[in-house]
Design a protein around this nucleic acid. Sequence first.
DNA 1: TGTACATCAGTGAACGCGCGTTCACTGATGTAC
DNA 2: TGTACATCAGTGAACGCGCGTTCACTGATGTAC
Lengths: 203, 203
Amino acid sequence: MKRGYHHGNLRQALVEAALALIAEKGPQGFTLSEAAKAADVTPAAVYRHFAGRDDLLAEVARQGFDIFAALLEYAFDDGKPTALAAFEATGRAYLAFARKYPGHYQAMFESGLQPGRHPDLALVSRKARETMDRAAEALVRSLPEGRRPPASMISAHVWATSHGVVELYLRGNGGPQPRSPEDLLETAIGIYLRGLGLLSPDR
Amino acid sequence: MKRGYHHGNLRQALVEAALALIAEKGPQGFTLSEAAKAADVTPAAVYRHFAGRDDLLAEVARQGFDIFAALLEYAFDDGKPTALAAFEATGRAYLAFARKYPGHYQAMFESGLQPGRHPDLALVSRKARETMDRAAEALVRSLPEGRRPPASMISAHVWATSHGVVELYLRGNGGPQPRSPEDLLETAIGIYLRGLGLLSPDR
DNA sequence: TGTACATCAGTGAACGCGCGTTCACTGATGTAC
DNA sequence: TGTACATCAGTGAACGCGCGTTCACTGATGTAC
């Protein structure tokens, strides 16, 4: 792979180099210098495209939230075929994203950068949460009035459980598990939905 | 606070300095040199008590798992007064630990050190998990035969949800939340237990 | 009780390293005429 | 089509910094006689 003095699309190449580094060594293992080297470029060149290390990391997270929100949206599919099926699909999409985009996921949730410092990051992260809120709202509407918990609570529960499964069981931290993360999340959400009165007790 | 040439109990002082640093700046913000400085000692002195940075960090985590296991054990209280109450108390203890011992918690779950490298760490971490498994087993026994899910699955579910609540809602990462982490976890576990058929639908 | 000496826990200087960041520069690209 | 020039995206050297770790050392402590 030869190239001349100019790179062509260094900005995105740096993002992808960062992604590979993060996926391999964790968000703390990623350094600006190594990302530059992976993109076959001098560290100083990075500053033509990003304000610094944190800015590059934030862009990685931003792109991650973009993909994440799109995946959730696609899985939710406007509540089709049923609110229940759509909600379950949304939960599965969370885990699928974490598995398929580990670099993005870690930049988003494990890199320790606070969204307050990057307004566009906060924006796109809110968008993802709103998608999950909508899935929960559609779900709640199928419950009889008077027995409807707040949708934001339900989405927070599912988000937390999904995140916990990813952190504890998708990463190898707890040693080999008898159950796959997908199975764990599926069963957890199943029992939870039964508790909400949305699944019959014998399913 | 004066002291002579010898410190007295440097080993534990270093552990506590590390804890304070981790609680304040995260597990990646902790450095051997800063811990030494906080303990009013030269960095080289650390090597009289620990093999290096990772070893000190592992000791912090080990002490954390010790406290953690003891707290869970205490909350479970041999399944008294009822298996259900004891189980709920165990879930609450998880969150209480994360809140009260943030340095320990982060060293244990967010520092990126793998238990495989520190055998005694793996041992004491297994002990904590076994306590939670026992709480789940006691719980399952109050279900009719034939409707008993594996206890290890239940404890994995609750562990994951608790961990997710800690990561997402106890740390300030998601901005101000309308609901406290304690409330979120309580409601999540409540709905989950109802799904298991352990709580009546109208509680 | 006093002294000699071994043991041990600290010091302080030094090391090599990789980091993020800056700066003046230069080679390539694109545009105006 | 050709030329002059502005713009831009890279280079390469240098910086100061803090890190983990090592080493020969020294001051304090405890023990034997």
